[in-house]
Design a binder for these strands. Sequence first.
DNA 1: CCTTGCCTTGACGCCGACGTCAAGGATTAC
DNA 2: GTAATCCTTGACGTCGGCGTCAAGGCAAGG
Lengths: 149, 149
Amino acid sequence: MRIGELAERAGTTTRTLRYYESRGLLPARRAENGYRTYDEGDLRLIQQIRTLQDFGFDLEETRPFVDCLRAGHPAGDSCPASLAVYRRKLGELDALIGQLQSVRTEVGAQLARAELEASAELPGGPEPRCELGPTAPQSPVGPNWEDER
Amino acid sequence: MRIGELAERAGTTTRTLRYYESRGLLPARRAENGYRTYDEGDLRLIQQIRTLQDFGFDLEETRPFVDCLRAGHPAGDSCPASLAVYRRKLGELDALIGQLQSVRTEVGAQLARAELEASAELPGGPEPRCELGPTAPQSPVGPNWEDER
DNA sequence: CCTTGCCTTGACGCCGACGTCAAGGATTAC
DNA sequence: GTAATCCTTGACGTCGGCGTCAAGGCAAGG
């Protein structure tokens, strides 16, 4: 199997596979003409990588799983190094979820407060001001700031 | 107040303030010698921006709040456009938290399953294999893959 | 006068995971 | 024979939010 077919079967691109190879994951045998050659095991490697990436693992974190598979183990998480990554990730996830929840709470509180103050001014308010609506482009074409592209 | 003092009082850097200016937030008056000049209102602008950034808002999302403050309103979220951003952010946060929680569940399940299988092989297992531990650098210096810098 | 310390603009670097184009070799299809 | 399709390496672009020089102007103290 050559790189194009492997990419298609894995639902990815050849660029991605070459990138994996450049990072030391997914090594490739070469045919006589220099073409990369792959087998079914390589397909499983890629599937392992993509699964973990879908979980939010970055490439470097998938390395223990890949090494484990390439060492002949039945699953990428059959090795202690992979389990260690799982555990670390669980901790990171818990921390992140906690932070996001507290942010959610704070933002929700800010919204509630701002809505209250808005409704306190609108109905019998003295002046009806604040014309900056959500769908207002206000300045026609946009000012001059266009440096530092 | 010049840019250095403002940066220090805001707990940020001059580079950051110039960057904000280049993005159209935080406009600056100029003294005769070309130096940027700021007042207390600009400090509040920056504080508003940093607060939102701490919440995970990106710079572009802070624009309505900044515009609102510069329009003379008492708070950055006194305008409907800001409230709209709040609401959109709440939705994004809920979606993200939900995704992360389901990932957490899945990773937790994978870990539990892998631990089970490991303990089922170890105690009375036939061959004690799998030497790839968490603290093993295995290959001495690392292979040759170092292209695509 | 000279140094020090602020300020100015301009421009490149960084990080991660690739996308995209370029130039050319190999193979296959007609 | 030649066109179409695959493959190769190399290298630059992307996105956000700045960090980090570099080269030079302006003001104040000793």
